[in-house]
Amino acid sequence: MHRNPSRPLSPHLTIWRWGPHMFVSIANRVTGAGLATVGAAALVWWLAAAATGADAYATFVSWATSWIGIAIGVGLTWAFFFHLLAGIRHLVMDIGAGFELSVNKFWANMTILGSVVLTALFWFLILGVK
């Protein structure tokens, strides 16, 4: 990056008062990166293990049901539901809607709340089915 140090910088991250829309914005990128790496690896492992056979699948299940596997699983499902809801919010904003300050803040908060509720619901149903 070439910059003339004698020129002032435009206002950047540090000067703004923190709000839910800022958290949702950066968390969408962070959850996306997490899903794209850890989530994709877990999906590939699950499918490859299922295709390889019962023994390979048992190895996957023993990892997935260990405490670290469950911690990663819960983290991934939260990241998934967050990225999904934040993505829907972005699609709405892409058509030019939802930029009014109060509306924007409301749906940013709903994205955070919704991701937690959907994660809890998902694990409730998974554990209920088994």
């Binding site: 994709a40 690896a41 999906l43 590939v44 499918l47 490859a48 299922a50 295709a51 390889t52 056979g53 019962a54 023994d55």
Partner: peptide, 21 residues
């Protein structure tokens, strides 16, 4: 690589190539 591995795994299962089950 990841997509190919996942894609092939589903094809293998779908075409019934898993001998152990």
């Amino acid at each position: 690589s990841g997509a190919a591995l996942a894609f092939f795994s589903v094809l293998k299962i779908a075409f019934g190539g898993d001998a152990s089950n």
